[in-house]
Design a protein around this nucleic acid. Structure first.
Length: 204
DNA sequence: GCTGTGATCGCCT
DNA sequence: GGCGATCACAGCA
């Protein structure tokens, strides 16, 4: 195995989804495409899906299937799911193997490969040109911009040549807001829990 | 900036 | 058959 400098460590991911989600803010998401093109951005928004007790989680009640198997995988495993019939979303498993906890990466500030990202985000004709700040400002958008789909599901972030997360820029605690998660409709008590972390500080 | 709505399909009942 | 861990667009402020 090739260990890269600045890679987040295994122990970084061997923590609760809450801790991992908050600490991923400001880290660098990197992607290398088949043709060698490199894409990167600083993580700006995350959500924690804490475990089988979390009604909003795909693994609620211990539900385990082919779709969400990566949530149960060793910490640092990529979980990509397909939703709304057209979008992919990127997650990282955490805490421990056989416990379904994960962090959803919802947005990044793009810093490398913006031209390629814009092409990937414009497969259908658009009415309005895409501003840089809208390239990766949503979980489905960032998967489009980074060419992330189910083919990356199950890969290990510490070992993959296709995707990695590295130390990035330090964001002060005061610059990170914590709010309820987005798009959680019917999860009882879990709807309002503050499990989303977001910064408006753009380090670019 | 905000709010409402249609698109589109894998997964579950 | 119903519903998403969403997005683009229209209309409005």
């Amino acid at each position: 195995m090739h260990r890269h400098q600045n890679h987040l460590t295994q122990s970084f991911y061997e923590r609760s989804a809450e801790r991992v989600a908050k600490d991923l803010i400001g880290c660098l998401l990197e992607r290398t495409l088949e043709d060698g093109t490199r894409l990167a951005g600083y993580i700006a928004e995350t959500e924690a899906y804490v475990g089988p007790e979390d009604r909003a989680s795909h693994a609620f009640g211990g539900h385990r299937s082919q779709r969400n198997e990566s949530m149960w995988a060793p910490p640092g495993t990529v979980y990509v799911y397909f939703t709304y019939g057209m979008h992919h979303c990127l997650n990282v498993s955490c805490l421990r193997q056989d416990h379904p906890a994960a962090v959803l990466i919802r947005a990044v500030f793009p810093i490398l490969g913006l031209k390629t990202m814009r092409t990937l985000r414009t497969k259908r004709p658009r009415k309005h040109a895409l501003k840089d700040r809208h390239l990766c400002d949503g979980p489905g958008k960032l998967c489009q911009a980074f060419a992330i789909d189910r083919s990356l599901d199950g890969v290990n972030l510490l070992q993959s040549s296709q995707i990695a997360i590295r130390q990035g820029v330090a964001i002060k605690g005061g610059e990170i807001q914590c709010t309820p998660r987005i798009g959680i409709g019917t999860a009882g008590d879990w709807v309002g829990k503050p499990l989303r972390w977001v910064t408006r500080v753009d380090p670019r």
